[in-house]
Amino acid sequence: MLLEVKDLNTHYGPSHVLQGVHLEIGEGELVALLGRNGMGKSTTLKSIMGMVKPTSGSVKFEGQEIVGLPPYKVARAGIGYVPEERRIFPELSVLDNLMLGIKDGKIRNPNDPNTWTIERIFHHFPKLAERTHQAGGRLSGGEQQMLSIGRSLMGNPKLLLVDEPSEGLSPIMVQEVRNVLEEINKAGVSVLLVEHNLKVALSLAKRVYLMSKACIGCQASAQEVRSNHELRAKYLEA
């Protein structure tokens, strides 16, 4: 297993927002984490990333315990984070945003075709290439999403945590972002995807975790979620 989360608990003050979350992601897998709003999907990603300190539990990445580490160490272990709000640096240019994603400012093995470099990012995101020197804050929502994904890829992660990438985007951009995630996954990067757009999530993921009330309610295949009405009614529909 690439990532093993066991019995993860997180509190925000007195509220117990993650109550014993279990999940696993294999090498090269794209797994979706679904559920209604407020069930703790984003908190799960943040807790794995170390942006929120879990109160107990275990997060193993490539067999190493990483729970409780500060975010920069989790990132260095090989996990990239694409946050819900995209959080690109508005004053920096597109190029500088991407450059900050490079760990220690140096790309290891730049000639390996599997390594993410600026050229490779621009190849996957031609729109960003056109805006190399524009300030990140002046991009459209979709372009900012591309930039946020590209920026994490520059750190050459083995696993990408992606939070609501299609939120607030036009249908065309949603499709583009979906395709990019598929390409990235085909290129060997594992993905844990939080996504409210069921169609997008199920078209990408083979395996799905359904979250309810601060823990994982059940695990299913994308096929089951598609065909099983009860499952959808229980976990997803408002």
């Binding site: 990333m49 942006m51 500060p70 975010p71 920069y72 989790v74 990132a75 260095r76 984070y81 946050p83 959080r87 640096f89 508005p90 004053e91 920096l92 500088d96 945003n97 450059m99 900050l100 994603g101 760990k103 220690d104 400012g105 920026r151 994490s152 750190g155």
Partner: peptide, 24 residues
Amino acid sequence: TRLGKIVRAAVSDRDMVNALGINI
């Protein structure tokens, strides 16, 4: 410089800088 760009980025969002693998 890269360091300066990190500082400017951190002015707007230091947690995100941290999540990119930079020891804030």
